[in-house]
Amino acid sequence: MDFSWIFNYWPLIVAGAIQTLLLLVISVVFGFILAIGLALAQVNGPVWLRGCAKAYCTSFRGTPLLIQLWLLYYGVGSLLPMIPGLRTSFLWPIVREGFFFAAVSFTLNYAAYEAEVLRGALLAVPKGELEAGRAFGMSRWTLLRRIWLPRAIRIALPTIGGEVVLQLKATPLAFTVTVMDLYAVAYKVRQDTLLVYEPLIIVTVFYVCLTLVITRAFRLVELQVPIRR
């Protein structure tokens, strides 16, 4: 095996790894925030809002992420230049890039899956704990912030860790919309050097190491915040 090419491509490898990490962090952080709203809408919202949240989750969970990404990039992306004034605004350098559409697509998709996880976790919180909070005079917002949501997140924590790993493994799809992530760098190396296995091995090692870091981090959080019965 020949790994001598690494010395010539290491700046691209580092840049690709950073792009991959950025996609993961952006989609997980913003997707989780959106998922909380979707889960609460399904559990405690009015009928119309509950229906909208369920329809959203069903639609995004029922279609492949690649199709969602392409619909955004090739569909919505082709309409953006028609918006008056957008090309001359400060937003244009951001919204014209494939990274923007990949981040939005990954965020919306992750939110749909995570919302279902949080919905089940919210329903799994013991009713006695919520009744105790109400007995202490907590408002609905205080009850949600101090008891219901933290307990639900703790219950769902192992599943959330698994979803983050799945999200990490989905990031190579960004390569299909011109994002120069780590897999795109491996593809470029293969085109330039005709080496197939060596670039993929580098990508594999990166993903395995990052998966170990993620699982270890979630495991430490689980140990620090045990479930109280």
Rank of each mutant, 00 (worst) to 15 (best):
F3I: 10
F3C: 06
S4W: 04
I6W: 03
Y9C: 01
Q19C: 08
T20Q: 00
L23C: 02
L23N: 03
L24P: 03
L24N: 06
V25S: 04
V28M: 09
V28Q: 09
V29G: 03
L34R: 11
G37E: 06
G37I: 07
L40Q: 13
P46S: 14
V47N: 12
L49S: 13
L49G: 11
R50M: 13
R50E: 13
R50Q: 15
K54I: 11
Y56P: 04
T58N: 14
T58M: 10
F60L: 15
R61M: 09
G62C: 07
P64L: 07
P64W: 00
L69D: 01
W70R: 12
L72S: 06
Y73I: 09
S78N: 15
L80Q: 07
L80W: 02
P81G: 13
I83Q: 08
I83T: 14
P84Q: 08
G85D: 03
L86A: 10
L86P: 03
L86K: 11
T88G: 11
S89F: 00
L91I: 10
L91H: 02
W92N: 06
R96D: 08
E97G: 12
A102Q: 01
A103M: 06
S105I: 09
F106Q: 11
Y110S: 14
Y113Q: 09
E116H: 11
R119D: 04
G120F: 07
A121Q: 01
A124L: 05
V125K: 09
K127N: 08
K127V: 12
K127G: 06
G128L: 03
L130G: 05
G133N: 05
G133Y: 01
R134F: 02
R134D: 01
A135K: 08
A135C: 08
F136D: 07
M138Q: 14
R140H: 14
L149Q: 08
A156S: 06
T159C: 02
G161N: 06
G161A: 04
G161Y: 07
V164Q: 08
A170F: 04
A174M: 04
F175M: 13
V177E: 02
T178D: 00
M180A: 15
L182S: 02
L182G: 00
Y183F: 15
V185L: 01
A186P: 03
V189T: 01
D192L: 15
Y197T: 15
P199S: 05
L200P: 05
I201T: 14
I201E: 00
V203M: 00
T204K: 04
F206V: 05
F206G: 01
V208D: 05
C209E: 03
T211C: 02
I214C: 01
R216H: 12
R219L: 09
R219E: 08
R219K: 11
V225K: 12
P226H: 00
R228K: 11
R228N: 05
